[in-house]
Nucleic acid binder design. Structure first.
Lengths: 193, 193
DNA sequence: AAATGATGTTAATGTAGATTAACATTTTTT
DNA sequence: AAAAAATGTTAATCTACATTAACATCATTT
């Protein structure tokens, strides 16, 4: 099991001792998924938090009309999980599905308390990571309220150019909260300028 | 300075020793604001996180057209802060203003590292608090994408009946991401049923 | 109690983005 | 290389909500 990508990521935020690295290695597992596979399905209880080593996942909600709404993508060095289901161990509102073959390092709910207790630095790391995710989420709410779909698309394109390249356009539309037809219109309009 | 409300809040999540309580008391300050006063203004760097003891605040963004978009309210036992500005010490995107006379217990950025270092349990508390806030924020994004304004209003009303009672309707509209005129229409429509 | 400002309502008109549907293109499977 | 599946485009029509504007009510100040 190669957890080097996770260690590299961690080392940017906190410094672990050799002993802590050994302990961490014993707490996580490695898992490969094929394109199309579900890591989590709406209604199931989420037992794990995945650190993406390679590939890409989408987290989405299927509403009562069967419409899919994408909340986030996760690529290399990102975390992929329905945190709500994880922290309260209640049925998930969301699906997490791989849109490429994906390799993950997995933290299990059962080990989490022990991991935090043994390596408080990791609790710090997760606090900081979630702080950033929360801030990004609030900014997204504001953008959805105060900006047009075109403006939001341009920001997405500029913020995540690598992600836009590797996912189909209808998923970008879903992430932006618009239809694929309207995103198509926006793009042709941008192309004319 | 009476920090009992904060201690009561903390005791629901983690248990502090007497020594830790003494230390915490030395790290925070008490502050009163009048209705209308700003705790934070867009563009300023946020130096503090407030725990609301009494009163009510709103956090909002003023867009380029001068329109106000409310992100959250904070009443008793809630946290009120632009976390993005706080954690990165960069100019704030948001305003925090008191919509009632408000009393707060204030954590200062300068003390925060020391507080976490001295009371790791508080880092745990903040991790959990922010986890919940993040989850709520994600659910709000999904609701904004998948539900009508009427459905969102009904959920707000059922989730925060006390808050709806104490704030003007045009602020509820702003929080929901609609105009006050449209919320008025929704309410009269509900009344007819 | 009059005046002022803040908040709420109603109705007409406008628009960003949804829906539908038909077709075009690209990718994957056989 | 043909067929099938997935993805993307275009255009007509529809709708949820915004905008504007005029007025109504309530709260606060003088």
């Amino acid at each position: 099991m190669n957890i080097q990508p996770l260690l590299n990521y961690i080392s940017k935020i906190v410094t672990l001792t050799d002993e802590e690295i050994t302990f961490l290695t014993s707490q996580v597992t490695y898992r490969k998924y094929l394109k199309g596979q579900y890591i989590l399905q709406q209604g199931d209880i989420n037992k794990s938090v995945c650190f993406v080593v390679s590939g890409c996942t989408k987290m989405f909600y299927v509403d009562t009309d069967g419409q899919e709404h994408i909340l986030m993508f996760a690529v290399e060095d990102w975390w992929s999980s329905d945190l709500g289901s994880f922290i309260s161990q209640t049925p998930s509102d969301f699906n997490v599905q791989c849109i490429e073959d994906t390799e993950c390092i997995v933290f299990s709910y059962n080990n989490m308390e022990e991991t935090y207790a043994h390596i408080p630095k990791l609790e710090r790391l997760f606090r900081k990571t979630i702080e950033k995710a929360f801030v990004a989420s609030q900014k997204r709410i504001v953008r959805n309220f105060s900006m047009s779909a075109k403006e939001r698309y341009l920001i997405f394109r500029d913020s995540y150019p690598e992600i836009e390249q590797r996912i189909p356009q209808y998923m970008v539309a879903s992430y932006l909260g618009i239809t694929k037809e309207f995103l198509s219109k926006i793009k042709s309009q941008i192309a004319l300028q």
